[in-house]
Amino acid sequence: MTAALEISGLTKTFGEKVAVDHIDLTVPQGSFYGLVGQNGAGKTTTLSMAVGLLRPDAGGASIFGADVWKDPEHAKTLVGVLPDGLAMPERLTGREVLTYLGLMRGLAPEVVAERAGELLAVLELDRAEQTLVIEYSTGMRKKIGLATALLHGPRLLVLDEPFEAVDPVSAATIKTILRGFVAGGGSIVLSSHVMALVEQLCDQVAVIDKGRVTAAGPIDEVRGDVTLEDRFVQLVGSTGGAVKELSWLSN
C-alpha cells in the first residue's frame, strides 16, 4: 500500500545552519503520526517541505504517491495543511475565509456553504460571525486554520502544533474530529512538544533532534517501558540528566 506521506532525504540549510539533515519518514495510510522535537529541531521546516511550502535543498516528498514538487496539482488536492503562525486573508470573517478558499478549490458554491456552516458550528466559531480574522485570538486562529485544512475533504492532514493556545474545551472537540477522521480511513501527521498529547492521540511517533530522526516507529516501541516524556529527554537531552535551577530564584 502506498504511504500517505513519504519523505525521503529532505535537507534544508539556512546560511550556515543545517535545519533539516536528510530526514526520511514514512507515514502509513490510516495512521496518526506524531512528530516530536525540541524548539528549533526542524519540525516546522520538515513539514513545510513535505507539503510544498518550502523548497528543499535536496530530497523529496510524495503524498499518496503523488510527488509534491513534480505533480503539485494532484498532491495538493489530497492534503490539508495547518501551518504554524502564518497569516490568513485577514480582512475576511471566518465564514468568508472558508467560502473564498472553497471556491478557490473549485468546490460547488452550495457545498462550500454547507461545509463552512458545519465547520464553523462544530469549531464554535459561528458566534464570531461578524469578527474579522485579524481580530481573532490565537486559539481562534488555530481553529479557523484547522477548518481551512479540513474544508476540501483531504485524505491526509498535516498539522503543525494544532493544539497550541487552544482552550481545553475546543481541544477536546478537535481531538474528537481528528480521531473520527482517522477512524474513517484518513491519515494525520501532527507536530507537538506536548508528549502527553502525542501519547494520547498518536499510534506512531518520530523524534527529531537537530534536524535528524533519532527514533521512529509505533509509539510503544519508541517509548519502551518508560513514558514518552522520559524517553524523549533520554534521546535529546544534552545536559546529562540533572535539570539546572536558577540560583537567584530558588534561594
Binding site: L53, H74, T77, V81, M88, E90, T148
Partner: peptide, 17 residues
Amino acid sequence: ADGTALWLTLMTPGASD
C-alpha cells in the same frame, strides 16, 4: 502587504490569484 497569507495560494492547486 498580505504577508505569509500567500501559503493558502500555494496550497490551492489551480488557483488564479
